[in-house]
Design a protein around this nucleic acid. Structure first.
Lengths: 302, 302
DNA sequence: TATTTGCTATATCAAAAAAGTATGGAGGAA
DNA sequence: TTCCTCCATACTTTTTTGATATAGCAAATA
């Protein structure tokens, strides 16, 4: 059994005669006769009663006709959906988001979903390290991270915005109470809680460099493995911290607050990161295009 | 796109390599390569990433693989169900039953349904004439009727039993009160309600003949178009009737009752009737075989 | 009654498609 | 390096499919 035979069979069923079907199929009559006979032989079933003025479906033939129509329908659907998956219009997109960038991610995802509603979204939150592991294992397609200074050549990266580093403090540890900004020199001896310099946040080097330029090296009393913990330590009064402004701003209820530091310009860059292989999943490509477009529009507005 | 290409594609997806698939398919490797390429060309989609140690599905390929498995599954199902319909194990069986033979029909149908549970049953009740019309139009496959003396050669007929004709009466019109049977002579002047002699019940001729032999012709005061009406007229006291015994017995609450008539042997035969064409629907054949078997078993018990 | 017409089935030939064979390049493993 | 495996391509052979011609059959028509 093959598609040709089913196609011929359907044409005969619709035309009510073999010769009629051969005309609509634009082939001669004998081939249709033969393919039909082959199909009947293979099934071991008579599909048509041959009369002198055409053919007539048997019960078995009617059964086959019904089902073959569904078959051709699902065949068309299949081809279309495969093309859609290839084009990135349909499929699955698995994303990882760091705790701090949920806002950026959801707003971009909302726009993406409006444009590609047929793509199933899978999203998880996690630390940069966890997410990068999942990306490497192929369990995630893309990540919302912060740009890292040591970039792997196997990863693609696209900047989504700029997030200035600011000083994080609570009332108890504020080095310049009542002032809008803190001069960097005021931090010379201030105890600090910083992110472990594993470079997953990308600004450790810049931070140390700026302190060095100001003539001191920071007095780190606690190395934190993640930003929530750093905020908790700052809140507990262990010292001040340095974090991207928007991360602290994303916790509006917290007693911890930030201030810009004068003569200090280290920044964190929210980025999209993906596995940079020669083959790229269609919806990843589409998502990157959308991110590009979104970026350009925001640049134009600014 | 054709089955061969999908088959090769699936084999490659399962084997993870083209050469591996060619071995399981028992063909050389180049044909598999080529059919795959043709499929990709037609879909306009890359289905596999070629690596140095085999091939790997793309997202689009994964999509096609999922769906092609379903496709092959439904293909097998399709072939099986077509064969089943041909064998009469599956399909539709449309039956007509006259008012009086519901009992016979349902008991036979119950047995049939146990043996062929996948056949959808359609049943309707009606007068012999209505049912025969539907049979002719092809809207019914078989009928439960009474044997008619004028048989059409385009109809097949199989006797299901014997039903003696008896006298139908109510207390008011009983010609032999207190007796178990009625001598036929007692009916010489009795007013009678009889079925219209259109021969759809097959016993009109026999009935008249038996009366003639007894030396009279019946005094028919009312011609009825159907058996329920005849019973109603008898019940209303218009006269006595003649009906197959089991038809009256099927109305246990009725004040009307029957008695055998002495020296009277006209009978009615419950029969199965079907369109006798060279092509016979599979489940009709199976049903007839079952009816035959049922008949034989009843003969052996008796 | 004979003829024409419209249908299907079969035989035979021609064309197209698919499989087989041989071979080359590319990337790891010994 | 050399070997091995895998995929792709060029070319030949086999198989399948389609086209043409023709026969049989039944019904409509002359």
């Amino acid at each position: 059994m093959n598609f040709k035979q089913l196609e011929y069979f359907s044409a005969v069923a619709e035309a009510g005669s073999i010769s009629g079907a051969s005309r609509t199929l634009h082939v001669a009559q004998p081939p249709v006769s033969r393919q039909l006979a082959l199909l009947e032989d293979e099934l071991g079933v008579t599909l048509f009663l041959r009369t002198n003025k055409g053919v007539e479906l048997t019960e078995a033939g009617r059964c086959l006709w019904q089902q073959s129509r569904q078959m051709f329908q699902s065949l068309r659907t299949m081809a279309d959906s495969v093309r859609d998956v290839d084009a990135g219009v349909r499929g699955q997109l698995k994303l990882g988001v760091i705790y701090s960038d949920v806002q950026i991610a959801t707003s971009l995802l909302k726009r993406y979903h409006q444009q590609f509603p047929q793509v199933e979204l899978y999203v998880r939150m996690g630390s940069p390290k966890d997410l990068l592991d999942d990306l490497e294992r192929g369990e995630l397609h893309m990540l919302f991270l912060r740009s890292q200074s040591e970039r792997s050549y196997s990863l693609g990266e696209r900047v989504l915005g700029v997030d200035p580093l600011e000083l994080v403090m609570c009332l108890e540890t504020d080095p310049a109470p009542g002032q809008e900004a803190v001069p960097i020199r005021a931090l010379r001896d201030a105890p600090m809680c910083l992110l472990r310099s594993d470079d997953l946040w990308g600004y450790s080097r810049d931070l140390l460099e700026e302190c060095r330029r100001a003539g001191f090296s920071p007095n780190v009393v606690c190395h934190c493995y993640d930003t929530p913990m750093e905020m908790q330590m700052v809140q507990a009064g262990f010292g001040v911290g340095f974090l991207p402004k928007s991360i602290v701003a994303a916790h509006p209820g917290s007693p911890v607050y930030t201030k810009p530091v004068l003569e200090f310009s280290a920044k964190s860059y929210p980025v999209l990161v993906w596995e940079n292989s020669p083959y790229q999943v269609g919806c990843v490509t589409r998502f990157l295009e959308l991110a590009e477009q979104d970026w350009e529009e925001r640049q134009n507005r600014a």
